[in-house]
């Protein structure tokens, strides 16, 4: 990443039969940037994100993620990124410590590293007393903060967050975003999707996908100006209302 780019994508396309899920999207994400990846249900966000994580091969186009080529080096990409989603994160029937050991092991950390990481994380999250508690017994807000930390146990260059804050209370949601800010401040690139439009405004830049294409991309404040809108919610609705394909 000599050029300071964490992600560099040009004309990235994914077709399923005659359906073009992702239609020649082009964008860059800078190192340490918080990049909001927005779009209506069915716009193609998940497909694009799966490609960027090395889980699905593009039909055409180019992409460099964490300095690696998407076609040739997807295994290296997987080692260099973290992923967290509300749907899948931690193992509920393992304790906090066990989850750490499991994920640390998967990413090839040494026992020493896992031990250090775990104690640092527990201290940082003030969860020392809960280290041997089953994850399923934890409140949702803790689980979310914890799974964000676990997704970064291997110090990834980029962390992908797929609707990370669904369902949590407004105070916890803000604590979570403070953690995102901190991670970005330390140089981690954050790539995040959300349906909360106020959260879109916490991002350095956002892109909005409509029908497989990126229809707008800029700083939130610039987009509001450009679309003569009060905030990202209005910008989003103006753009997404134009969508021809529904989420089918």
């Amino acid at each position: 990443m000599k050029n300071g780019l964490a992600i560099s994508v040009s004309d990235l396309t994914k077709r399923f039969g005659d359906f073009t899920a992702v239609d020649a999207i082009t964008f860059d994400v800078k190192k340490g940037e918080i990049f909001g990846f927005l779009g209506a249900n069915g716009a193609g966000k998940t497909t694009a994100m799966r490609m960027l994580c090395g889980l699905s091969l593009p039909t055409s186009g180019k992409a460099i993620v964490a300095g690696f080529d998407l076609y040739k080096e997807s295994e290296k990409i997987k080692k260099s990124i973290g992923y967290m989603s509300q749907k899948f994160s931690l193992y509920e029937d393992l304790t906090i410590r066990e989850n750490n050991r499991f994920y640390g092991g998967i990413y090839g950390l040494t026992d020493r590293q896992i031990k250090d990481k775990t104690s640092f994380m527990l201290e940082h999250l003030k969860l020392e007393s809960q280290a041997d508690t089953l994850v399923k017994a934890l409140p949702l807000g803790w689980k979310q903060k914890l799974s964000f930390s676990v997704s970064m146990i291997h110090d990834p260059q980029i962390v992908f967050l797929d609707e990370p804050t669904g369902g949590v209370d407004p105070v916890t949601r803000r604590e979570f975003w403070t953690m995102i800010y901190e991670a970005a401040h330390r140089g981690t690139t954050v790539f995040v999707t959300t349906h909360y439009m106020d959260e879109a405004e916490y991002c350095d830049r956002v892109s909005i996908m409509v029908d497989g294409k990126i229809e707008a991309m800029d700083k939130p404040a610039e987009l509001s100006k450009q679309f003569n809108a009060k905030g990202m919610a209005e910008v989003f609705v103006q753009l997404a209302r134009k969508a021809k394909r529904s989420d089918n």
Binding site: A40, N41, H195, M197, F236, V237, A240
Partner: peptide
Amino acid sequence: TTGVDAVSRQ
């Protein structure tokens, strides 16, 4: 409306 985008919610 949980998990539904801003337009569908509206």
